[in-house]
């Protein structure tokens, strides 16, 4: 780690003030400390937001408000989440390890950086880490990389699980900052790399995530299907989050989000439109996959993600619709 100063904020306001003075926030630290040790991240000022509150989950008629500092473990253990938004609990529990989930926070996990091996290795070219240096992953070992939403500059995935479920659940990210509070639908929170992969999301400088809001539950069948090499404690090769409502044997409502498939948590309205009103069948799943993957492009070692996603989608829809 490069030398840095560490201050401790006692409120969102003091955290935002510190951020305005150039400080980066640290909460659980499970991703930031990891990257700082490798000098992938080299902040010179940190402000701890562990004691600013924002660690409650509250429910009202509009849905559920999850404070940014709620740990992943507490979120997944929350009775309301487990009862009404099980997709979120399942996705969180599919990620990392119990130790990490105890420490990682809701806000931090949304900002988790990619696991691309070239991003993590300062001897290698990476536009996300060092804009303009190039992308060594495109022609390198890219088994875990994205097949959708890629650019010349970057093919790295957002690696997490929690945000994938939140995307399927139409979550809204609440932020506060020098320009005041604002709400960002999660579908617009993560940014595709384009020609500037260094920014993973649309947060402005000095903006702090304060909470995530989940709209009222849909009552649909919620399935999180994570496909990975190990049975546990491994990042997804592909994951599918589904929230499906069946009425009289037909798909009445359907939300589908995909993790580790694109450069950002991926959702495609055309796929959902195709499915709604239809009777589930293997042929239907195949058509949905064709729409989802029509622009998918592999880079060699990750080509398999295209057929894998089609299969994972079929498995997920099969499970969610079988009643």
């Amino acid at each position: 780690m490069k030398a840095f100063t560490l201050d401790h904020a006692d409120s969102s306001a003091s955290a935002i003030t510190a951020m305005a003075a150039g400080a980066r926030t640290i909460a659980g630290g499970t991703n930031l400390v990891d990257l700082m040790k490798l000098q992938v991240e080299v902040p010179d000022k940190l402000v701890s937001i562990r004691s600013i509150g924002l660690n409650d989950i509250t429910q009202d008629d509009d849905g559920l408000l999850i404070g940014a500092l709620v740990s992943n473990a507490d979120c997944a253990a929350d009775t309301r989440v487990r009862q009404s938004w099980p997709l979120l609990a399942k996705a969180i529990l599919a990620g990392a390890s119990p130790q990490l989930r105890n420490r990682a926070t809701t806000g931090g996990n949304l900002c988790q950086r990619t696991r691309c091996g070239y991003f993590y290795d300062t001897t290698q070219a990476c536009n996300k880490r060092e804009p303009g240096r190039g992308c060594a992953a495109r022609e390198g070992f890219n088994r875990i990389h994205a097949v959708l939403g890629t650019s010349e500059a970057c093919i790295a995935t957002y690696p997490g699980d929690m945000a994938v479920a939140m995307l399927a659940l139409d979550a809204v990210v609440l932020v506060d900052g020098p320009g005041g509070a604002r709400e960002i639908p999660i579908a617009r929170f993560h940014r595709q790399p384009g020609d500037d992969p260094s920014r993973d999301n649309v947060l402005e400088d000095g903006e702090l995530i304060t909470a995530v809001r989940l709209p009222a539950p849909t009552g649909g069948v919620q399935v999180y299907r994570k496909v990975r090499d190990r049975a546990s404690y491994a990042f997804a090769l592909v994951s599918v989050a589904a929230d499906v409502t069946m009425v009289q044997g037909r798909i009445a409502r359907c939300a589908l989000a995909f993790g580790s498939l694109g450069t950002v948590p991926w959702r495609d309205a055309a796929v959902e439109d195709l499915l709604v009103g239809e009777t589930p069948s293997p042929a239907l799943y195949t058509r949905a996959a064709e729409v989802l993957l029509k622009d998918a492009r592999g880079f060699g070692a990750n080509d398999f993600k295209i057929p894998l996603t089609a299969r994972a989608l079929a498995a997920t829809l099969h499970e969610a619709t079988k009643g």
Binding site: G29, L100, N102
Partner: peptide, 15 residues
């Protein structure tokens, strides 16, 4: 009361 990885936390965060 909860388990965690002590390698990924800064000591000063444990006041």
């Amino acid at each position: 009361g909860r388990r965690m990885n002590s390698c990924l936390s800064l000591a000063q965060l444990h006041h």
